[in-house]
Design a protein around this nucleic acid. Structure first.
Length: 209
DNA sequence: CGTTGGATTGGCT
DNA sequence: GCCAATCCAACGC
């Protein structure tokens, strides 16, 4: 039995795939053979006809991988210094993906520390830009096949925690609560729904999510 | 061709 | 909490 998630897992709407990815393990094999792995603890879904998605205005050189077959890695460069990675979902031509926002370091943690220039395990993969840096994911990995490739893939993992749901970070669209995380997990990125600030408490109890 | 701002992060107030 | 860093894709003229 294979530990790797099959193509069929990804060939569904991003909003279905995203929460199910939580608890599975992202594995990275570097060119020198070093193996790195992290448990997925936070993701976001991006669907076709979703104004918050790079695919919303159609295919461009940057987002063409999003419009390709499912089960591939879509990597993009942003803010002049960071890369973000996504698992492409649905089927070719649709333009849909799941942003991998944070993970719990499991394997090759010291190698991740060196890549990140940070010591604390909590600072290694807790954010989309940090995650790619820790795993050595950049432009060359754009389009990598997560199902048959040997650079990066996802293996089955166990999940027992409940899944938290909220609006996506940096996407001002309250109608699409497509950010999913493992409730209570310390490796979830900042911008996390933290303990209520004094201001929020004054505004009343948090809304149902 | 010029402008704008981003699916972020880290350091400083 | 605020904001600079630092590219470049997307869009308007």
């Amino acid at each position: 039995m294979s530990r790797r998630l099959p193509r069929s897992f990804y060939a569904r709407p991003a909003t279905e795939v995203a929460p199910e990815l939580l608890g599975h393990v992202l594995v990275r094999r570097l060119a020198d053979g070093t193996r790195l792995a992290a448990r997925l603890v936070e993701v976001e879904a991006y669907e076709p006809d979703d104004p918050g998605s790079h695919a919303f205005r159609g295919m461009t050189p940057r987002n063409e991988v999003m419009f390709g077959p499912p089960g591939h890695l879509y990597v993009y460069f942003t803010y002049g210094m960071h890369f973000c990675m996504n698992a492409v979902t649905r089927s070719a031509g649709e333009g849909s993906a799941v942003l991998l926002r944070a993970g719990q370091p499991l394997t090759g943690v010291d190698a991740m520390r060196r890549r990140r220039g940070r010591d604390r395990t909590l600072d290694l993969c807790s954010g989309p830009g940090r995650f790619t840096q820790a795993l050595g994911i950049a432009r060359p990995e754009n389009g990598a096949d997560l199902v048959r490739g040997d650079a990066v893939w996802v293996e089955r993992g166990a999940r027992s925690e409940p899944v938290g749901i909220g609006i996506r970070v940096g996407v001002h669209d309250t109608t699409r609560a497509w950010r999913f995380w493992l409730e209570g997990d310390p490796y979830v990125s900042r911008g996390r729904p933290g303990p209520p600030s004094p201001k929020r408490r004054a505004a009343g109890p948090p809304a149902v999510r």
